[in-house]
Design a protein around this nucleic acid. Structure first.
Lengths: 213, 213
DNA sequence: GGCTGTGAAGGAATTCACAGCC
DNA sequence: GGCTGTGAATTCCTTCACAGCC
């Protein structure tokens, strides 16, 4: 397993989702062509992507959905059930806590954080809302490794402060339309999800008459 | 304006967001270096990206935030105020309707759709919830060009049907963790936002010790 | 000195083309 | 015939390096 392109990892996550769906439907075998159609890519791409991790297919037949999905799961989540928290229990935060796509991924939302006393103690999805004051403690106790940011952008600086100090947190999924900056030496992976940006890109694709993911 | 890389367009949307923020703060001029820091990329990248569209900077000084933001807006087609709808007025749909990142983007959420009679007529964010039965009519009347999908995955097939027939819809932002497929000849741009996938990628980045967007 | 803009070089990701297998 | 796996070719994207300007 040499240097895997990031783009490949992104697609592999898609293949996995697709395979699980096929398995649910009772489909046992799938070809690279079919998998490509379901994930909007090319058969060659599928095969090349998979080849980074090993040889999973049967020549002339295709891939065993069950086996392949197990393999990909292992590859993607490094077989670790990571705990995740959501910061901000407003409408977006609570929606994310209930998001059905997290099911069967190995990621568990185990806590939300907010400063509103009204919300503290409330249950959202599987998790409870904690006082943001206790952030560091709860993160430690619950062994939380990743945070999803869904606060209003006005309070982002306060949260940056908090995250800079919480040494457990190693990854951040940021929904706040602001580029965050941590004051820390340790490496923290950050992915920004800017929904407005997605709309811009959609317009661009429409103009160009293309599709994408 | 030759063939612009998609990656460039994605970053340009980020620059725009950043510029608007700087303008709000009263900052008049910004260098490629500063812009790069705010968007987690390199100064060369910023300059190269912008150079696809023209020459906007002043040598030795930097970029006029106001002017540049106007230019980028035009490039991204933000000056066309496209109307957007959200299909599914559950927790995610209603959160998206209220999402603050859509402000000042040129995109307006003008309608939500749901089948739950309880919700129909309710106001969420700026928009009202309409009966999904009237989808085609409302889309036409309100001149809606893009749809955001936030329905439970069980009802996705029904929605695919609907979207296949609504000729106005030219772009789809899909939050349902399923690859959608339209039965139509016309070109529809689709962007999938799979949040579970983002978490997988986050783990991958953490393991690799990198950052990204 | 500090900055932009851009060809050229380098690196990364995708597509091609075909060998090998059932 | 239909499929996988993969080096080679190609296309796409980023980084370098420097010319030109204030």
């Amino acid at each position: 397993m040499k240097n895997v392109p990031l783009a490949t990892v992104e697609r592999v996550a898609k293949y996995l989702r697709c395979l699980n769906r096929l398995r649910e439907k009772g489909i046992k075998v799938v070809s690279s062509k079919e998998l490509a159609e379901h994930t909007r890519t090319s058969p060659e791409q599928v095969r090349k992507d998979l080849s980074y991790f090993g040889r999973f297919g049967k020549t002339g037949t295709g891939y065993d959905t069950q086996k392949l999905s197990r393999k990909l799961e292992r590859i993607l989540k490094a077989q670790r059930k990571w705990n995740v928290c959501i910061i901000g229990a407003g409408s977006l935060g609570s929606a994310l806590a209930r998001y059905q796509g997290f099911k069967d991924t190995g990621y568990n939302v185990v806590a939300l954080f907010d400063s509103d006393p009204e919300k503290i103690g409330e249950k959202m999805g599987q998790a409870e809302v904690y006082d943001i004051e206790n952030f560091k403690d709860v993160v430690k106790k619950k062994d939380i490794k990743m945070a999803i940011l869904a606060v209003p952008k006005e309070s982002i600086e306060e949260i940056e402060e908090l995250l800079s100090k919480a040494n457990n947190i190693r990854g951040i999924l940021n929904f706040v339309p602001v580029t965050i900056k941590l004051k820390t030496r340790r490496k923290v992976a950050i992915i920004d999800v800017d929904l407005a940006q997605k709309l811009y890109i959609l317009s661009y694709l429409i103009k160009r008459g293309r599709e994408m993911t």
